[in-house]
Design a protein around this nucleic acid. Structure first.
Lengths: 122, 122
DNA sequence: GGATCATGTCGGACTTTTCCGACATGATCC
DNA sequence: GGATCATGTCGGAAAAGTCCGACATGATCC
């Protein structure tokens, strides 16, 4: 999460930068917010409208709307118009990037589990 | 990553708040920074001193030092004094929290893989 | 002891994020 | 058409994050 969403979008639009060079928030950044993680968890049960998703959350609707926009940017959710509502669907495919990264780290763990004991607390 | 590290530490110290209520950065927040992810990846190969870890990174040493402090706070690394150096070790155990969270999300995916096709782009 | 090296931390600048109230848009209902 | 509902977006404030130069600390070496 290197940059403001508005700024980034503007820079990509005005100067033809790639999302990459403009510092697009990545999946890891998207998961950094507890609110966004709760949104994703809520969507696990099925598609939901924005109003539905707002319930039980500690922030007001505009904030939720922006969190959803960020999740949209990184591809974790998709929208469907339905009348005057927007229905959000979960799309967990970008999470495989996190999974892959994690596997690399935990592979190390499995291979050297015993090492942890030898690490002094100083 | 809800709060400034210095502030949080102060609040925990002065007012007896738990790390939880003071909004301690969690593992997800720790992984949000590319620099921190690179640090963890570098530590995969084995223990490293701070100077070693600084090489090839796009930021100066004080920044690296603070990133390491945050990783220490969430338990992803441990330190060992060795002479005038500090040797950092990887401790991937907190990553299991991320792994567990991810499994819940991806379980959904496996169970409803076909649904993705039916989601309209609008 | 004094010089040097490795590292942590402080002070402050700058950027990004988060959040909200207010307004804009577009669909629905009467 | 006008009222209403669901949602997005803007403007701006407040908080958090990131980064660096400068200084502090503590170990080593002479």
């Amino acid at each position: 999460m290197i940059q403001d969403r508005k700024q980034r979008v503007r820079r990509v639009a005005e100067r033809g930068e790639t999302s990459e060079s403009a510092g697009a928030p990545d999946v890891f950044g998207a998961l950094a917010s507890p609110v966004r993680r709760r949104l994703l968890m809520a969507l696990r049960a099925g598609p939901r409208t924005v109003s539905d998703l707002c319930e039980g959350l500690p922030v007001a609707r505009p904030a939720v709307s922006e969190h959803l926009a960020l999740l949209r940017d990184v591809g974790l959710v998709r929208v469907q118009k339905r009348g005057r509502e927007r229905v959000y669907h979960l799309d967990p495919r970008p999470l495989t990037e996190v999974g892959a990264w994690l596997n690399v780290m935990l592979a190390f763990w499995n291979m050297r589990l015993g090492d942890l004991d030898r690490i002094g607390e100083e």
